[in-house]
Amino acid sequence: MTLKNGVLDPQGKAIGHSLNRLGFPEVGDVRQGKYIELELAETDAAKAKARLEDMCKKLLANTVIENYSIELVG
């Protein structure tokens, strides 16, 4: 989950400032996100993806401010 473009990310800004202060002047805009790992019983990739989309929309992401992307591993 990452914040959508245009949504102010004060935490990302604070991280950017700290990195600049620590001697990383090349760091510009910083966006902070969230990473969630789920174990699924489903073995069909297409079905798993559809279920995950539903989970993201219903609970895992707030689509007012966040984008999400899904990666299947295993």
Partner: peptide
Amino acid sequence: VTEAGLLPGTLMRNSHL
């Protein structure tokens, strides 16, 4: 109530953290 969709928008982290 915003998370439940009863009101528009959302409440984010205070800008000064």
